[in-house]
Amino acid sequence: MRVHIVVFDGVEELDFVAPYEVFSAARFFTDRPVEVRYVTASRPGFVRAAYGTRIGVEHGWAPEQADIVAVPGGGYARPDAPGVWAEIRRGTLPRALGAAPRPGLTLAALCTGVMLLSAAGLTRGRPCTTHHKARPDLERQGGVLKNARVVDDGDLVTAGGITSGLELALWLVRRELGPDAASSLEAMLEYEAHGTVWSR
């Protein structure tokens, strides 16, 4: 299982760290190889997250080398600051996401990262969710909102809220690697996934 987690200036720390840890730890509970990396749609280098954390990103955009591309959010409440709004205005990441879908690839997003998928036209007419403050925008842009913590529509999986990266990653581990891997991860993390998972 190859997971690429997209990071950008203004990304919320918990949004990208929580899935990174869950996916990375999954390798201890499966015989399948698991590879997790941070990627950027711009040049590799340093990214400054919402609270000032600097993270070195060595890998560029390569969705053809991934099974899951996970998109965190951040900065949606501050339209003039780095984050989701700045990425939407720049257009590079939404264009890259719009060109990414292919058979075998799951696009996943959490919190306001879902709005980057929306900007790419990927949530229109699809069941989805996002952070509660962005839900009206997502619906106006054509998303079919579901009242669930995680919404699984096959090759599009979304989750609502900052801490939902844990649920998103645990759900995808359960789906891709099986319930034993997911329950073992929950025990290791001392965390029980909560909230409704909506799936077809």
Results as ranks from 00 to 15, higher is better:
His59Arg: 14
Gly45Phe: 06
Asp155Pro: 11
Ala169Asn: 14
Lys146Pro: 01
Pro72Tyr: 06
Arg27Asn: 06
Ala70Ser: 14
Leu105Met: 02
His131Asn: 07
Ser199Asn: 12
Gly75Asp: 03
Ala99Asp: 11
Ala99Tyr: 11
Met1Cys: 00
Ala182Ile: 01
Glu12Phe: 06
Gly52Thr: 02
Ala187Pro: 02
Arg140Gly: 10
His131Pro: 00
Gly45Tyr: 10
His59Gly: 04
Arg135Gln: 07
Arg89Tyr: 00
Arg102Trp: 13
Pro19Arg: 14
Ile162Asn: 10
Ser164Leu: 08
Gln65Ser: 03
Leu145Gln: 13
Ile5Gly: 11
Ser183Glu: 10
Val173Ser: 06
Lys133Thr: 14
Gly125Tyr: 00
Val114Ala: 13
Phe29Val: 06
Asp9Glu: 01
Phe8Tyr: 05
Val173Leu: 01
Gly165Val: 04
Glu190Asn: 08
Pro63Leu: 09
Asp67Asn: 13
Ala193Asn: 09
Thr129Phe: 00
Cys111His: 07
Ser42Glu: 10
Ile5Gln: 15
Leu93Arg: 03
Ser199Ala: 11
Thr106Arg: 02
Ala108Pro: 12
Val47Pro: 00
Pro19Lys: 10
His131Tyr: 05
Pro19Asp: 09
Arg37Ile: 02
Arg2His: 15
Ala62Arg: 08
Asp153Trp: 01
Pro94Val: 07
Ile68His: 11
Ala50Glu: 11
Ile5Met: 11
Leu172Trp: 13
Val34Glu: 15
Pro44Tyr: 04
Glu58Asn: 12
Pro94Asp: 03
Asp67Gly: 10
Ile5Ala: 09
Asp180Leu: 14
Met115Pro: 09
Leu138Asp: 01
Thr92Gly: 02
Phe23Ser: 06
Gly160Thr: 14
Tyr76Lys: 15
Arg78Thr: 12
Ala86Asn: 04
Ala26Ile: 03
Glu87Trp: 00
